[in-house]
Design a binder for these strands. Structure first.
Length: 555
RNA sequence: UGGGGCGUCGCCAAGUGGUAAGGCACGAGACUUUGGAUCUCGCAUUCGGAGGUUCGAAUCCUCCCGCCCCAACCA
């Protein structure tokens, strides 16, 4: 694991003996699905614990019953596990600490450090004051300890309606850091909690719950994102006033990625308005989406490693993530041939009904992957893109009178082009060179082009889903005035191809299998819809395409 | 406007007073039965700007500029 400023802090704490061992935690709120930004945090927290021989807890920060659901808890568990991390028996919930938190609140009240406030939300906001001027104290700020205790207990007992009162810490209404202007600790919420049910009608605020939860778990390094930097003085204040184990909060910059959105609010909207098919839509940066897209967890871990950990807010280019995915897949994915947009090719000098079995290498990067048999015959399917009646310069695929190698098969020469009434090419007719079986050229002749194909007799029809970035623009958060960001979703982000012709070996793929379609890209058998009877493949990422680049240059 | 952070190549990111790592992207070439992979080479005389300290500064000091976060009974 790469070194970075947080690792430096940990190494120093270990070296000076401040901590004999470290404890970290990943603390998601179960109010949505995890995304690649969370993956960065997961990899760091679990990675750091592993690197330094410590432990990392999974803790659900479930202090807001109105937004949290069991479905999200389940998805988070699944995603963290899928990423390759194990929290063993250390699965905790902030809601497990509600009673302790309540007791601590009474302790603060007794110490004169907290009070029940009857001001409304608006009044509290108004009393908090603007940034550049001190706030005003609430008229309820100086209630007696006895009165506060009585009121707080009755709040818990359910005597008051939602929003009628809150418990506040008594700190400093003039503080430059607004978080210290008597922050709210508890609000009244008659809502059913996904785990505690109706046991409570007062719920702790994040600030009041988070640090103490860390403390209870004896977290040594509490890592969070930059926006909580302002909360650290409050985090420390609570821990100090309570006299409990002091974790150290350290902030780092959250991950931003080009061509996608990462905010929970926006992801939720994409899902709710059905702009995408669900939380696991392969176009989403959610872990579930990336999984369904075919991204290997190892690639995501590698990516998390490469982007580093700093306090600089930046936006990582999608290209780096895709690079990590290709690098991993290149190593492990089996190669298969699949024709996405089929064009008929007939070997006119090949006898009808006769076939020859050829050996195709499964993975040139992995000798142990071996070979598989593919049948060659008179009637084949090739890619429409691999034939051009009028080939441009540097195009070395099939064209009238030209030779091309059929991968693992023979070198063939185009002798005739068949068109339909509309003038569209519907079939290419070729002769084959019997001396080139397997693709070699015994006479030493150079055949630049090699194209993939599938024998018509063996071809299995498949649906192939081509994915592109959800947004064509690098920064979809940068929207012109008056434009709803959601209208920037690229309608071309999903293209569904039916009737693709794939090798029979592909129909037997299991959902989740990752395969390279030679010359096209990496694909995965869809987790939800793929069956042997009706194969469905998702494009994970394209292969690098220097021909496309060449064309772009040519204009 | 008060508080808190951050500014090193197109994008990430090392660097912590000794003379600008690395990755991605990009460009050129080699090799190639995937226009894939692989390999080689190129890619910041300069670190937001201006001064200053020093034999020596991205690193120290001063001033300035820019960007981000904070005024939920969200997290």
């Amino acid at each position: 694991m790469a070194s970075h400023f947080i690792a430096d802090i940990i190494e120093n704490d270990l070296a000076t003996g401040k901590h004999p061992t470290i404890r970290t935690r990943f603390p998601p709120e179960p109010n949505g699905y995890l995304h690649i930004g969370h993956a960065k945090s997961i990899c760091m927290n679990f990675g750091l614990a592993a690197k330094y021989g410590g432990t990392c807890n999974l803790r659900f920060d479930d202090t807001n019953p109105t937004k949290e659901e069991e479905e999200y808890v389940a998805s988070i568990r699944e995603d963290v596990r899928w990423l390759g991390f194990d929290w063993e028996e250390r699965e905790y919930y902030a809601s497990d600490y509600f009673e302790q938190l309540y007791l601590w609140a009474e302790q603060l009240i007794e110490a004169g450090k907290a009070y029940v406030d009857d001001l409304s939300v608006e009044e509290i906001r108004e009393h908090r004051g603007p940034w550049n001027a001190p706030g005003r104290e609430s008229p309820y700020r100086n209630r007696t300890v006895a009165e506060n205790l009585d009121l707080f207990r009755r709040m818990r007992a359910g005597e008051f309606p939602d929003g009628s009162r809150v418990l506040r810490a008594k700190i400093d209404m003039a503080a430059g850091n607004v978080n210290l202007r008597d922050p709210v600790m508890y609000r009244i919420l008659h809502a059913t909690h996904h785990r505690t049910g109706d046991a409570w009608c007062i719920y702790p605020m994040y600030d009041w719950a988070h640090g103490q939860s860390d403390s209870i778990e004896k977290i040594t390094h509490s890592i969070c994102t930059l926006e909580f930097e302002d909360h650290r003085p409050l985090y420390d204040w609570f821990v100090r006033e309570l006299g409990i184990w002091p974790p150290r909060q350290i902030e780092f910059a959250r991950l931003n990625l080009t061509h996608t959105v990462m905010s929970k609010r926006k992801l939720l909207r994409l899902v709710e308005e059905k702009v995408v098919a669900g939380w696991d839509d392969p176009r989403l940066p959610t872990i579930a989406g990336l999984r369904r897209r075919g991204y290997p967890p190892a690639a995501i871990r590698d990516f998390a490693e490469r982007i580093g950990v700093t306090k600089q807010e930046g936006t990582v280019e999608l290209a780096l993530l895709e690079h990590c995915v290709r690098e991993e897949l290149n190593r492990v994915a089996a190669r298969r041939m699949a024709v996405l947009r089929p064009l008929r090719l007939t070997i006119v000098d090949w006898p009808e009904g006769e076939f020859e079995e050829l050996a195709a290498i499964n993975n040139p990067e992995d000798e142990t992957a071996g070979t598989r048999p593919v049948r060659f015959g008179r009637d084949l399917w090739i890619e429409r893109d691999d034939f051009l009646e009028e080939p441009p310069k540097k195009y070395f695929r099939l064209a009238p009178g030209r030779e091309v190698r059929l991968r693992w098969g023979y070198v063939v020469k185009c002798v005739e082009v068949v068109k339909d009434a509309a003038g569209e090419v519907v079939e290419v007719r070729c002769t084959h060179d019997p001396a080139t079986k397997g693709g070699g050229t015994p006479d030493g002749r150079r055949v630049q082009g090699t194209i993939h194909w599938v024998a018509a007799a063996d071809a299995v029809d498949a649906e192939v889903r081509l994915y592109n970035p959800l947004f064509a623009a690098a920064d979809p958060d940068d929207v012109p005035d008056g434009v709803d960001w959601i209208t920037l979703v690229d309608p071309g982000s999903l293209e569904i191809l039916a009737g693709c012709k794939v090798e029979p070996a592909l129909a037997t793929a299991a959902p989740g299998d990752r395969i390279q379609f030679e010359r096209t890209g990496y694909f995965t058998a869809d987790l939800a819809d793929h069956t042997p009877e009706r194969p469905v493949f998702n494009r994970t990422v394209t292969l690098r395409d220097s021909w496309a680049k060449e064309q772009k240059k040519a204009g």
